[in-house]
């Protein structure tokens, strides 16, 4: 179970998170929505301990990871997989070495075995015959899917997806949604997904949380979010430029 408690984070004078509270149950699929620059990626990085908060706690199974030393933190991270918004593939390694990175590092598989697992995971994200390419030879959407394969390669219990379907064609996007659902249902993975794509959000979420002005302003099932009374959430999920959320210079 993941609990985020009163999380605050600023970068210089810029306050990004201003008291975020969120609870994600074991085996649950939580989707986080929110405007561009609202701090979704920053929140995700706190959950895996990449950023340390100014204030507040992040509990993973009742252990506060913000106070852990390096060794303990790495032990917790082995239970996680993370897909980065920009894929963040290692550009000095081939595709399969990227996917098998954790397996090779932690010596849980022989190189042959690791390569076989990498191919298998690549197939799960719809990629074949790309094992020996370098990341620079891939398209944006392919990179994203290799990043996804890397995030799931070591069979993590908790997977964090930062915009898994952005940059994919609609059919591929739907296939990735199916994959996320399958991982959750078959392997009981806990997942936290950031997305701007409401179709995808409604499809994969058990619950949806909206981040706005540094706080979670509503958490609910897809049904509840669809029929929300909150004007901010309503404006966001219907994708209207008219409403309480103002875009500087664009909306009158």
């Amino acid at each position: 179970m993941i609990v985020v408690e009163e999380l605050y984070k600023s970068f210089g004078p810029k306050e990004v998170l201003k008291g975020v509270n969120l609870e994600i149950k074991k085996g649950e699929s939580m989707v986080i929505i929110g405007g561009s620059g609202s701090g979704k990626s920053v929140l995700l990085k706190h959950i895996i301990g990449l950023l340390r908060p100014d204030r507040g706690r992040v509990l993973i199974d009742n252990v506060d990871i913000t106070g852990l030393n390096e060794r303990q933190l790495y032990a917790v991270r082995r239970r996680f997989g993370m897909l980065f918004q920009g894929a963040a593939l290692f550009d000095s390694l081939t595709v399969w070495e990227n996917v098998a990175f954790a397996l090779l590092r932690q010596k849980v598989a022989s190189p042959d075995e690791a390569r076989r697992i990498a191919s298998e995971k690549l197939k799960m994200v719809g990629l074949k015959g790309v094992e020996d390419l370098m990341p620079s030879e891939l398209s944006g959407g392919m990179k994203k899917r290799v990043g996804l394969a890397r995030a799931i390669a070591h069979n993590p219990e908790i997977i964090l997806y930062d915009e898994p379907t952005t940059g994919l064609d609609p059919i591929m996007a739907d296939a990735i949604n199916e994959l996320i659902i399958q991982l959750q249902q078959k392997l009981n993975v806990t997942s936290v997904t950031i997305t701007h794509d409401m179709t995808s959000a409604y499809k994969i979420a058990d619950r949806i949380a909206m981040l706005y002005d540094g706080k979670i302003i509503q958490v609910g099932t897809p049904e509840e979010i669809k029929n929300t009374d909150n004007p901010v959430v309503k404006q966001f999920v219907t994708g209207s430029s008219m409403g309480p959320i103002k875009i500087e210079g664009v909306t009158a």
Binding site: I48, L50, R77, G81, F84, A88, F90, F101, A102, R150
Partner: peptide, 20 residues
């Protein structure tokens, strides 16, 4: 090389894969 790895989040990715 390290600078590029930093700004493209490859260094963060190493951390998430439990590699110092």
């Amino acid at each position: 090389e390290l600078g590029t790895m930093r700004v493209t989040e490859q260094i963060d990715a190493l951390e998430t894969l439990a590699t110092n």
